[in-house]
Amino acid sequence: MTSDGVLTLDGPAPDVAPEPAPLLSVRDLRTHFRTERGLYRAVDGVSFDVRPGRTLGIVGESGCGKSVTSLSIMGLVPEPPGIRAGGEILFEGEDLLKKSRAEMEAIRGDRIAMIFQEPMTSLNPVYRVGDQIVEGLRRHRALGAGAARERAVEMLRLVRIPSPETRVDAYPHEMSGGMRQRVMIAMALACDPRLLIADEPTTALDVTIQAQILDLMGDLQRRLGTAIVLITHDLGVIAETADEVVVMYAGQVVERADVRTLFADAQHPYTLGLLASIPRLDESRSRLQTIEGAVPAPNAMPKGCRFSPRCPLADSRCLREEPPLRDLGPGHQARCWYAPIEEIRA
């Protein structure tokens, strides 16, 4: 077990040193979509905490609900077809799901900011990048045009864009993907938010740029004390940046642990499958492991454990009854009847 940080549990608080109160506390969040083919439970009872200045990683494959979770926090789920089916999102003690549109608009970009997966298309092509940063700034801060522009230049310098004084007047199409992602980060951090949600921030970038962007985010986090929710399907990114990890599958949290525990002692067959499917340098393998099958269709969710159709361990009980998220140790929980699993051959 690691010394740095233990997750707050749902149950009675463990007798360890007092934790700082969570900045963001998602409680049993349910975001559903009404579609022509029935109700789609994209997020179905997700809970996690993010503490100030720390990084929470959310991992899962496409369609597991991780992006919808982040959009729910931002209040950006389109309604309809989205439905707030339940739960609460406590940010600095206030439930974001109860906020009005105008209140959410005032919070977005100021206290909670977000960066997106596609830097190539996330900037308005008809704007100079500086004007885009300025627009967000002036939405939330009473700044004059000159002061806002100075702040924009300062932000571009902070994200290490070379010659920010001239770059501030560049159009997005004059920049590379890595540069644009830096601009996105500058824009997101311009109002000094407490929480930054990064939805696959490096997926669209090539590997060397990925490392630069992750370094930059880590560095800015240490300097500014921003908490980060990092959404990714890349366990390598998680290993490098996250303090705590939530593994999602089919709209639910299937495992939750601090990052070292997760990599050393994962307890859910899905997490184990994900870990086994990463290429490693210290083992020679002819073929990478894969998890057979795909995430179940939203209208054909299995009755019992949602992972049972793909699980090598599944038995009749798994097909019948849905396992609860069970405590396995301090800050470590898994949603599996078999957990803790000591030995598994997936």
């Binding site: 970009g109 997106f116 997966q117 997101a188």
Partner: peptide
Amino acid sequence: DFMEAGRAVGLP
């Protein structure tokens, strides 16, 4: 994406 990014900055 920039429409959503604009919303995420809190633009009305």
